[in-house]
Design a protein around this nucleic acid. Structure first.
Length: 204
DNA sequence: TTCGTGATAGAG
DNA sequence: TCTATCACGAAG
């Protein structure tokens, strides 16, 4: 099985990781570290979106998103503006199934002073505990759209732990396909956006 | 609870 | 052109 299973702790996560299916990628990304320039944070919350059969995925209604999937490789950043205010960071998955992983929350680890300045808040728990918050903290915008996150060590994911306890529950803020348990959070972590309602633990 | 905000797509 | 929709966050 390609992916983090082969990556050593501290290594950049390669494109093979994103050549599986969105659910696996979303789950396995929890516990990895996102490196974004001078800032770093542990991924503590993700959601999976599937290009086929998932009405909540942009692919379902947006030709432009389907075109994005066609022309980009696994590991490309898919970034869009939501509600006219918040940038959303997603990673393209192209493998056994196509789709995206939405990065929903980080535990700030490095560059915290810079994140506080960008966010205008001091409480570390409020820095990156939501998809719109973390893009503001890391200064992620449309200019990063289509960037490959598997080639540049300044903008990538990194494996930092062997095993993390992950909880699966329903995705946040969507109206369709809302019953699917495709959100993944790091158990009892203080930096997730909204605490899971169920506590079905999944061990790696 | 409500409300701002702008990209996108589809209808007319 | 116009309108509905939207994977959010902050204030109250």
């Amino acid at each position: 099985m390609p992916g983090t299973q082969q990556a050593l702790i501290g290594e950049m996560i390669g494109a093979d990781f994103f050549r599986r299916d969105p659910l696996r990628c979303a789950r396995d990304l929890v516990g990895c570290e996102l490196i974004w320039g001078r800032c770093r944070g542990g991924v503590v919350e993700t959601e999976a979106y599937n290009a086929i059969g998932d009405e909540a995925c942009h692919c379902f209604a947006r030709p432009s998103t389907r075109a994005f999937v066609e022309r980009n490789q696994a590991g490309a950043a898919y970034i869009y503006l939501n509600y006219g205010v918040h940038w959303m960071l997603n990673v393209l998955v192209k493998g056994t199934e196509n789709g995206f992983v939405l990065i929903r929350a980080l535990q700030p680890m490095r560059g915290i002073a810079l994140m506080k300045r960008r966010r205008g808040v001091d409480d570390e728990r409020r820095l990156c505990s939501g998809p719109g918050k973390l893009t503001q903290a890391l200064d992620i915008t449309i200019r990063h759209h289509e960037m490959n996150l598997c080639v540049n060590e300044r903008f990538c994911f990194r494996k930092i732990a062997d095993s993390v306890e992950v909880v699966a529950d329903r995705r946040i803020g969507i109206r369709v396909s809302a019953d699917l348990p495709w959100r993944f959070t790091s158990r009892d972590n203080q930096h997730v956006s909204i605490r899971p309602k169920v506590s079905s633990g999944l061990k790696d």
